[in-house]
């Protein structure tokens, strides 16, 4: 790892000032993506600015029909939160399926969403639930937030404060994990909104990262049953192909995982 200087964030004003003034800065939260990247010299920020202690990024609250999760909440906090379990049980169980126990103790929801790894779990939930990303500058709808593999609509220096999830009528998540890395080879989050609309978001499989599967949304809005999904054929042309699976295999998995997520409403199906 190259040299770096660590700065513990004390306030929003202070971290924004540090980010604006210091050379080659990077925000850090749990660090479980950034530190491995720094060890491999894929990233070499000269200054690390730690966001975890900022009070604006802390806390999980239910506010009417919204569930608000502070960006610095680690996966274990989301998994163990009674507010999350009561509001969106599939989201708590999704958090409990990320990485391993030690990773869940450090990795944060804000870090995961800002990084937008093409095989991360949270982007699927954020997109399917139609969440809003609240930053220190504005509010961004999930649909506009994820702009491609490892890419988001965040501006340089912009900080995610929290993520607001509308509480759905029901939601479910199904994932096939890589047994070594625990990342999704393909996973699908299916949510039914309080207005009856259906959203399907797929992670791990798309060549541009997380995506909404509109054909499945339409079919499930007409009839919310696994047969609606099984009649569809996802396009292998938009799927990722790597040593873990071909595009055709992933296209087949997208269908299977989406059908399982329909079956798993109120829960998750992790394999």
């Amino acid at each position: 790892m190259y040299q770096t200087t660590y700065h513990k964030g004390q306030s929003l004003d202070q971290v924004r000032k540090l980010h604006a003034e210091l050379p080659e800065p990077s925000y850090i939260s749990g660090g479980f993506t950034l530190i491995p990247a720094m060890k491999n010299r894929l990233a070499a920020p000269e200054n690390l600015i730690d966001l975890r202690a900022l009070p604006e990024l802390r806390g999980i609250t239910r506010d009417g029909d919204r569930l608000r999760i502070g960006a610095a909440s680690c996966h274990a906090e989301v998994a163990g939160s009674p507010e999350v379990a009561q509001s969106i049980p599939a989201l708590a169980l999704l958090a409990d399926s990320i990485g391993d126990m030690q990773v869940r103790h450090m990795g944060t929801i804000g870090g995961s969403v800002a990084n937008n790894d093409p095989a991360a779990d949270y982007p699927a939930a954020v997109l399917a639930l139609g969440a809003t990303i609240i930053t220190d500058q504005r509010e961004i709808a999930a649909h506009d937030f994820f702009t491609g593999m490892y890419a988001t609509d965040l501006a340089e220096g912009e900080i995610i404060l929290r993520i607001d999830f509308p509480v759905p009528r029901s939601a479910g998540y199904a994932k096939l994990r890589n047994p070594a890395s625990k990342y999704a080879i393909a996973a699908s989050f299916v949510a039914r909104g309080s207005d009856g609309s259906v959203r399907v978001a797929v992670t791990g499989a798309g060549e541009d990262g997380v995506f909404r599967w509109f054909d499945a949304e339409q079919a499930l809005a007409d009839r919310f049953e696994t047969a609606s999904v099984e009649a569809l054929q996802p396009d292998p042309g938009m799927m990722l192909s790597d040593l873990h699976g071909s595009a055709e295999y992933r296209a087949a998995l997208v269908k299977v995982m989406t059908a399982r997520a329909v079956d798993a409403q109120g829960s998750v199906d992790i394999c």
């Binding site: 660590y6 479980f32 530190i35 391993d100 126990m101 030690q102 990773v103 103790h105």
Partner: peptide, 21 residues
């Protein structure tokens, strides 16, 4: 996980945490 220690009571992988943090 060979580097697992308890930090503030929770199991963490100490090879991926900065000492300064």
């Amino acid at each position: 996980g060979a580097c697992t220690v308890l930090m503030d009571g929770r199991a963490v992988k100490s090879c991926t945490i900065l000492a300064a943090a």
